[in-house]
């Protein structure tokens, strides 16, 4: 999790929105905190992962588009949920 605020409500919403576009079931676990697996399409449960900056997540998908699902979700997390925008200075 590279983004500053961790899995707060906005990133969770972005994650769940994306996960819901795929057929596969998605389960996510916060390896760092050793949480239980939660349903990646559940806005409520994803918050309970309590993922903060630096947490390692394991995203697993099962279904016809499992590979694409995981790739897309991993990319979203790695991109910091696109919440970091704006120009950069030195």
């Amino acid at each position: 999790m590279p983004n500053e605020q961790g899995l707060h409500l906005r990133p969770v919403t972005a994650f769940v929105d994306l996960a819901s576009r795929y057929e596969s079931t998605v389960s996510v676990k916060n390896i760092t905190r050793e949480t239980e697996e939660v349903n990646g399409k559940s806005a409520m449960e994803m918050v309970l992962l309590e993922a903060t900056r630096g947490s390692v997540l394991r995203i697993a998908a099962r279904g016809v588009d499992a590979r694409e699902t995981v790739a897309a979700l991993a990319a979203l997390v790695k991109a910091g949920f696109k919440v970091d925008s704006g120009r950069h200075c030195e």
């Binding site: 969770v12 769940v16 559940s42 409520m44 449960e45």
Partner: peptide, 16 residues
């Protein structure tokens, strides 16, 4: 408005 995005997400949460 985004404050309520998550609320909508929860209401659409199949598991819940």
């Amino acid at each position: 408005a985004q404050v309520f995005d998550w609320h909508v997400g929860v209401l659409k949460d199949e598991r819940l």
